[in-house]
């Protein structure tokens, strides 16, 4: 009975994982395909990697995407932190519920609507103030900040609520002025949430196709826009090569994160043992 059930579980988990990973494995394998036609196997080769590295179009898209993602993540984390702080630490100010609702709205707003409304905003701004002259890096970054900030705010808000206020009160009690409390206590304590908020905003931006498509202009293609337009023109194996590199980068990042987490757990365990010895 028990053996049967565990066999059932094994099968289910295998099928499930296969469903996730076989497409990725295929993608990686086909990135080494010599043939120009994606579905036709033409033997092993790294020619598409060479093509990829020589393609200026791809590299400008990658660098634009990374630039946007980094600037976006930094601003979104800063603004999201301020929003979370005012939600959690400023008590019941007037309009708090409204502010909280408006802060969370981008989470549930369809991307198409966000994208469209921002496009309308930028067009109006251009007519009234003459800025932005061209849509591109600046407009995409602003658009990304507006929606990813909400995600960051939620992450930080959860951490702030969980942290309680006594450490900040203790610092203030010991004579630290509010700004000092923020820099010496709140921000160091928030660091894990700030880092994960930053990474979340970074990923959201790197990943976004819909909103970026709305607010971009001629000549400014982010990586997702480039990939998507390439696919419309017909799949080419150099995109597989690009995807393989992205998978590799993500895998390395996850491994590093896991290592950090593991070392932190080891440290906590050691601390506990040390504390126990003092009892």
């Amino acid at each position: 009975m028990h053996g049967q059930r565990s066999r059932f579980l094994t099968v289910m988990i295998t099928v499930g994982l296969a469903f996730f990973y076989i497409p990725m494995i295929l993608l990686v394998v086909y990135s080494f395909n010599y043939s120009k036609l994606v579905p036709v196997w033409g033997g092993w080769s790294t020619r598409w990697y060479k093509v990829l590295f020589q393609s200026e179009e791809v590299w400008s898209a990658v660098s634009l995407s990374l630039k946007i993602a980094i600037v976006n993540a930094t601003f979104a984390t800063f603004l999201g932190m301020l929003a979370a702080l005012s939600m959690v630490r400023f008590g019941q100010f007037r309009g708090r519920t409204l502010f909280g609702g408006m802060l969370m709205a981008p989470l549930v707003m369809p991307e198409v609507i966000t994208g469209l409304s921002l496009l309308v905003l930028f067009i109006t701004l251009k007519q009234v103030f003459g800025w932005p002259e061209n849509r591109g890096f600046a407009t995409i970054t602003i658009a990304h900040i507006t929606f990813s900030m909400a995600y960051v705010a939620v992450t930080i808000q959860a951490r702030l609520t969980g942290m309680g206020q006594s450490l900040e009160e203790a610092a203030s009690d010991l004579g630290a002025k509010p700004f000092k409390v923020l820099t010496a206590i709140t921000i160091p304590r928030l660091m894990p949430a700030l880092v994960s908020g930053w990474l979340l905003a970074f990923t959201l931006s790197l990943d976004d196709l819909v909103i970026a498509s709305f607010v971009t202009g001629p000549g400014a293609s982010t990586l997702p826009i480039l990939i998507f337009s390439r696919i419309r023109l017909g799949l080419r194996p150099d995109i597989n090569a690009l995807a393989t590199i992205i998978i590799l980068v993500v895998a390395v990042c996850i491994a590093i994160a896991a290592l950090i987490l593991f070392r932190q757990q080891q440290r906590d365990l050691l601390d506990q043992q040390l504390a126990k010895r003092e009892e």
Partner: peptide
């Protein structure tokens, strides 16, 4: 932060990212 009082908190509220020494010095550094 300007009162001539100090408080010992129920769960101590020690700063976990500082050593014992840094915790104690924090108030004097202000």
């Amino acid at each position: 932060y300007e009162r001539p009082t100090n408080m010992m908190f129920q769960n101590y509220a020690l700063f976990p990212h500082m050593t014992v020494e840094q915790n104690i010095a924090f108030g004097l550094q202000q």
